[in-house]
Deep mutational scan, measured.
Amino acid sequence: MEVRTIKVFTTVDNINLHTQVVDMSMTYGQQFGPTYLDGADVTKIKPHNSHEGKTFYVLPNDDTLRVEAFEYYHTTDPSFLGRYMSALNHTKKWKYPQVNGLTSIKWADNNCYLATALLTLQQIELKFNPPALQDAYYRARAGEAANFCALILAYCNKTVGELGDVRETMSYLFQHANLDSCKRVLNVVCKTCGQQQTTLKGVEAVMYMGTLSYEQFKKGVQIPCTCGKQATKYLVQQESPFVMMSAPPAQYELKHGTFTCASEYTGNYQCGHYKHITSKETLYCIDGALLTKSSEYKGPITDVFYKENSYTTTIK
């Protein structure tokens, strides 16, 4: 009895394709271990004539594949690729409408935090270190965002349907971005203890939790000093293409032309909904596939993004 075979390709990165001759009487799992086709788990399936010449994702289970996976995804987590594939199996079914010149995501599976993050990423200057993220990001900007969303979920250790947080998501993504040249110098002034300067680099240099107003941050924000008295913390120097200011959701007025974009969060910790506000020729609110415009805006804002380049204080 002759062994019926077909020729397929296996890959971990969709760049390096490895030619395989597979036995049609055995499952993919018996031949390769966990195997995925377009995100779908085909591990328990036997090869079919229609699979001839198709590319299958496999887990990096030998040295060659491990090197290829690390170079593309910059992670050695053995569960990463499987999590990416199972997320992709959902995100490829989502709709990605162009809204006001940006790629958004039609609401499904509690994905409003991903839509808000995706919209924000198209408006701030950011370059990702893992080629996987950078490639998928370019495709997302062009309207094909399924891979990018699935990668975000995998890097953030999230599953489809789980509630997510924009600030946490951005923080994970910033860790995989090139923020080497970003720098922030802060000064804390206390009447009792004097003053202390701190220099922050990388992710810490672009994120701040405690106030939404970048102007206020430049002037000074009140913080408790270690001595128990009130101290003032203010920005001395900022070198970065953008800054992200966050605070627990509270009524906040966004003035046209003073910011790049913002995240609105309605609801409580267990259950809520994100919308995205962007400042173009007027203010726009993007909620999944829905767009509304207004000249002014007041609502429960939790993150505001500002364009920056270089700032030095005039406070002496």
Rank of each mutant, 00 (worst) to 15 (best):
D23R: 12
I286F: 01
S294C: 14
G257H: 05
T55H: 12
K307T: 15
T211C: 15
G82D: 12
K316P: 15
Q216L: 08
A132V: 06
V221P: 07
A115E: 10
A289T: 07
L254T: 01
L65F: 10
S295Q: 11
G164H: 04
G194T: 03
L212P: 04
T198Y: 14
V21M: 14
C193D: 01
T198R: 11
D165V: 03
K46F: 12
E162I: 05
H276Q: 06
M170V: 06
F305C: 00
T282F: 03
N129T: 10
N14F: 15
Y274T: 06
V67R: 13
A145Y: 02
Q196K: 14
F259C: 01
V42G: 03
G29C: 09
L291F: 15
L200H: 07
P78F: 04
T91H: 02
V185H: 05
M85P: 10
Y265C: 02
T282H: 07
E144L: 08
I286N: 00
R4A: 12
W107E: 04
R139S: 13
Y96Q: 05
K95E: 07
F56P: 03
D38Q: 11
F70T: 14
K44T: 13
Y274M: 06
H18C: 07
V22N: 06
K275G: 06
L133H: 06
E264P: 01
G161A: 03
A115S: 11
C225D: 00
L153V: 11
Y252A: 08
T258H: 13
Q216A: 13
M85A: 07
T232E: 04
V42S: 08
Q134Y: 07
E253F: 05
Q20C: 14
C156I: 09
K307M: 12
P248Q: 08
E253P: 09
P60L: 09
S104C: 01
F242Q: 05
V236C: 07
D77F: 06
H90G: 13
S86E: 03
S50M: 13
H276D: 02
V185N: 06
L163Y: 15
W94Q: 08
K298W: 10
N16V: 08
Q98E: 06
D303P: 00
T313P: 10
F56H: 03
Y138H: 15
A40I: 12
Q30M: 12
Q222C: 09
D38I: 09
A40Y: 13
E204Y: 07
Q98S: 07
S294I: 15
K255T: 09
N147M: 10
Y297K: 01
G29A: 10
K46C: 14
E239A: 06
S240K: 04
K233M: 15
K106F: 07
T19K: 15
N100L: 10
C112W: 01
T35N: 09
V3T: 14
Y265R: 04
F9H: 06
P131D: 04
